[in-house]
């Protein structure tokens, strides 16, 4: 069988793809920003001396790390409203779920970065008379951030791809738009190939940058 490629039909819907790209980028950056805040808070809670804080943080993390993102999206959009007795906007549900999901993973990246720093570093800072926040800010974090950066970028790249799942609750991201175009044109091969190319075009620079940063960091050690 010879398939007759026809990108022209699909090309007519370029604006839909571009809108999809805009949404995908917005959901990615939005959830990463909120995820960093959630991750930092959760990480602080995990490292706290209060048992209750540690437990709450741990439960949150495991809840979101041990269920698939797709399941989380379905639950928050379809199940949670029944508990709350109010409907949730699908875009809000998407952003909330994406943020909580990535926040749980960021928290673990932050935490393992901080605890990987030799105990002697903190001791040296304290021995100079620094208080806990000074030793964290001036001594531990600068070293920990360097160590966590590769995993952080990696997780963010995964997050970028994960946003495609919000299409199942009808959020108009790139994946959703591709299926819309497919529905209009009956051209799945072209529609989904164009979508894939858009993802590659956006993610390839990011993964390359990640590799570059990782090499740079290794060089300076």
């Amino acid at each position: 069988m010879t398939y007759h490629w026809d990108f022209h039909v699909v090309g007519q819907y370029l604006d839909l793809f571009l809108w999809g790209v805009v949404y995908t980028i917005l959901y990615t950056t939005g959830s990463i920003v909120i995820g960093i805040l959630l991750g930092a808070l959760t990480c602080a809670a995990r490292l706290s001396s209060w048992m209750i804080l540690r437990s709450v943080a741990r439960v949150y993390q495991e809840l979101f790390r041990c269920t698939p993102l797709l399941v989380q999206l379905l639950w928050v959009y379809y199940a949670l409203p029944l508990l709350l007795g109010m409907t949730i906007d699908n875009r809000a549900a998407a952003l909330l779920t994406l943020s909580c999901y990535v926040g749980a993973f960021y928290a673990e990246i932050f935490r393992s970065g901080i605890v990987s720093i030799d105990r002697g570093q903190r001791e040296a800072a304290l021995a100079l008379g620094m208080n806990r926040s000074q030793s964290m800010r001036r001594i531990v974090l600068p070293q920990a951030i360097k160590r966590m950066l590769p995993s952080f970028i990696n997780q963010s790249v995964i997050q970028f791809k994960n946003t495609s799942l919000v299409s199942v609750i009808s959020v108009a991201d790139l994946a959703y738009m591709a299926s819309v175009v497919n529905g209009q044109t009956y051209r799945p091969l072209e529609s989904y190939t164009v979508m894939s190319l858009f993802y590659i075009a956006m993610l390839l620079p990011l993964t390359q940058a990640a590799d570059y940063i990782e090499k740079r960091l290794q060089a300076s050690d």
């Binding site: 002697g120 001791e123 040296a124 100079l128 008379g129 620094m130 001036r138 070293q143």
Partner: peptide, 24 residues
Amino acid sequence: FQHFNLFPHMTALGNVIEGPITVL
């Protein structure tokens, strides 16, 4: 300390001025 515990992200000078600047 036995194992020095110098701050690896700072120069020798950076290590020495860290206490006086941050603490004092």
